[in-house]
Design a protein around this nucleic acid. Sequence first.
DNA 1: TGGCGTCTGTGCGTTATCGCACAACGGTAT
DNA 2: ATACCGTTGTGCGATAACGCACAGACGCCA
Lengths: 251, 251
Amino acid sequence: MKTANIPTSESPADNHLLAALPPDDYGRIKPHLESVSLTLGEVLYESGDRMTHVFFPTTAIISLLYIMENGNTAEIGIAGNNGLIGVALFMGGNTTSNRAVVQSAGRAFRMKPEALREEFKRGGVFQDILLRYTQSLMTQISQTAVCNRLHTVEQQLCRWLLINHDQLPADTLVMTHDLVANMLGVRREGVTLAAGHLQDLGYIKYSRGTVNILDRAGLDAVCCECYQVVADEYDRLLGAYIRKNLVRKGC
Amino acid sequence: MKTANIPTSESPADNHLLAALPPDDYGRIKPHLESVSLTLGEVLYESGDRMTHVFFPTTAIISLLYIMENGNTAEIGIAGNNGLIGVALFMGGNTTSNRAVVQSAGRAFRMKPEALREEFKRGGVFQDILLRYTQSLMTQISQTAVCNRLHTVEQQLCRWLLINHDQLPADTLVMTHDLVANMLGVRREGVTLAAGHLQDLGYIKYSRGTVNILDRAGLDAVCCECYQVVADEYDRLLGAYIRKNLVRKGC
DNA sequence: TGGCGTCTGTGCGTTATCGCACAACGGTAT
DNA sequence: ATACCGTTGTGCGATAACGCACAGACGCCA
């Protein structure tokens, strides 16, 4: 079980993508990074907005939400310390059709579009990492599509819990059933039912807006394959970069 | 209503992305393009395969399918003459977790990965177009996720028909209910029911593996917003390129 | 300590889709 | 002409999720 381990000071290297950069690239990029604090529910950008920054989360978790015309919402992707928010800034669109909302409060580093694009155009490791991350995000979105079509609410809840747990230092998630329902695009009651079942099984324990993960293996067993597929693809695309760097730093 | 207008000879410019290239880029790329014929059901690459080419369809339509462990399938994206197949080749992964299967027989131009990457690295218009297309593909996949979650089989069928109709020269689609069911990730009977209803409404007419689109406006009315969102986003990202070029060519 | 607002539990009828089974139809081939 | 096979139509019961309504439980604040 993980234990809370909030660092007193924050480094860009707490974000896995930044940590994977070679010293040269890292040194060039670091001056352009600005540390910011993100609060629960904060909207980083709205559907159609011109983005002002790209964000590299360190302790925060950001959800990409799609909002239907009738107000219904569904999460299509998520990024924590293993990713970034704002791919449209280097992909060319400058805006996306999603809302990016802070799903777990914490910190992130942000970078201006001009600096990002300038570095992207160099065509080196930074570009490669950004593009590979984008591809892994596509896998995540694809898997969300498949999961929505073919799996039960309970399985999807497991997947959601596992993904979030991966990016948090401790075993406690701050979330109400209502919030999760909006993420998964299902009814609040459906989440209550599924969460109640997982609690009966002893895998989680929750109360009024906080959830404790008690048994990850249990959640894994209930969960559909979708969680692992996305995790594996991320590792395939970016694992080499990230591991090489950990070795270099002696971890 | 469209009428069949099969060209006797085929040009790379029949693919909108290639047509959008400036003369210089087009001239450099053209020698690397090889015209190929694709038959219904042909698999361009399998999940996990190392891709051998990128494909720019002209008259063919290609589906990106996800195959579950239990054999269930669901379409997560589609590309015809307005797109390409094989984004992983320039995004960095070289493989994807999808199967690409020919969904409507026709022709395409293919290009070897080395030539593609070399041109991509130049960082000019070609790169920009490929990245913008990739972003529009992400929108398409996102919308599939949302649509799977929130809309009825009938609405999704409409969306599927409209998307395919867009990329065909005539009003006739070759497809059985069973095939569509596999694409949408639903039961064959569900498709029969939905298609029967659309036929009762006079919007389509079908029989034993072919569907005629009789009333596009009708389909549009039944369809969810998802179709238009994706179309608009494609236009926003790539419309300027494509229109500028049409003007230049005097269309 | 009491009150209030938020979060969670639960019940009930409705709807969409599923899984299965089988009948009917229509080309194509022999 | 007939047999066959792929395609489509239809009818079940089962299940998952929906929409709504309201009760209970907890935590915070006055």
